[in-house]
Design a protein around this nucleic acid. Structure first.
Lengths: 163, 163
DNA sequence: TTCACTGCAAAGAATTTGCATTGCC
DNA sequence: GGCAATGCAAATTCTTTGCAGTGAA
């Protein structure tokens, strides 16, 4: 597979190149596949499964295999560029790490009845100070270097609540 | 796994009967298998995989099948009696819901390097007020009835940090 | 040339499902 | 008797791995 993916497709050529430097900053050699996976993650706010990412990547560069997508996502996850979740349906979903996302820190509301997942925003200030306190606490007490925090709230969504 | 699982204070299946009423309160018909699964969950503070629970249940009642354990855990989860997590290794782990646990609310520290999971306590007061605020917020903004909250903190544990 | 990266197909695991049987109300 | 629960084994699904080809430094 050669360079030149992204020609005329998607958001324009060179789509993934923009992020090559960012990958290198994390010690990740910026290959075509990795840049594409990362660019897909950077350009969505949604929670994507490995296969979702694969489908997106394919539209731009059909030669990329599912295995590469899995390996790239794992690499990005290990380096803290994306988050990895399992919301209970047996498959992992990924989203861009808070630190790179314009969406910023947010929480997830998970309905235990219908399984729906909502993004919760608008609680930034409180979360921020809470997170700061938490970070200091785990550093002091456990020597743990906190990098990110994920909050899930379980319960019933408004629809299921009515029943 | 906690000691004393076997047939501890024995009485065979009577063991689980203690929680039968609790299951009924949730509309769950208290069968032998379900009571056993729930009693195993009630008597440990650990994070158990479906197979872990199966092994424990087996010690008491060898006739119970893995399928029943899966189905029971799912039922308990759907009814909010246990939490279900995936810490990234591809299998689900369960723990007793905060509301039934003596351990009370707690958080999880997950090392992204070695995968180790630590239980974090000692942050109760702060978490409690944070959780309260959060509950009100999601109720007002999303009509979401929050029942539980799970906080995961990602980063490097003290061991991996040294490297 | 060297070595990491990749694609493909096979392997591996965890979880779910089909179906006949069992057991409680 | 009727219906939900269960056990067993097969089936599904998601994810990882083995291996040889390919490309970049």
């Amino acid at each position: 597979m050669g360079p030149g993916y992204g020609n005329g497709q998607g958001r324009g050529r060179g789509r993934g190149r923009r992020w090559g430097q960012q990958l290198e900053n994390h010690g990740i050699r910026p290959t075509a596949g990795r840049e594409l996976v990362f660019s897909v993650m950077r350009e969505t706010e949604a929670h994507l499964s490995a296969d979702d990412v694969f489908q997106e990547v394919r539209k731009i560069e059909p030669g990329i295999g599912l295995t590469t997508v899995y390996r790239s996502l794992e690499l990005l996850y290990q380096n803290g560029l994306v988050n990895k979740f399992d919301f209970g349906d047996g498959r992992a979903v990924f989203e861009l790490s808070d630190r790179y996302s314009e969406k910023g820190p947010h929480q997830h509301l998970i309905c235990r009845s219908c399984g729906k997942i909502l993004d919760l925003t608008g609680f930034r200030a409180e979360e921020k100070s809470f997170a700061e306190g938490m970070k200091n606490h785990v550093d002091k007490e456990y020597g743990f270097a906190a990098e990110g925090m994920a909050i899930k709230i379980y319960g019933l969504c408004s629809d299921c609540r009515k029943e």
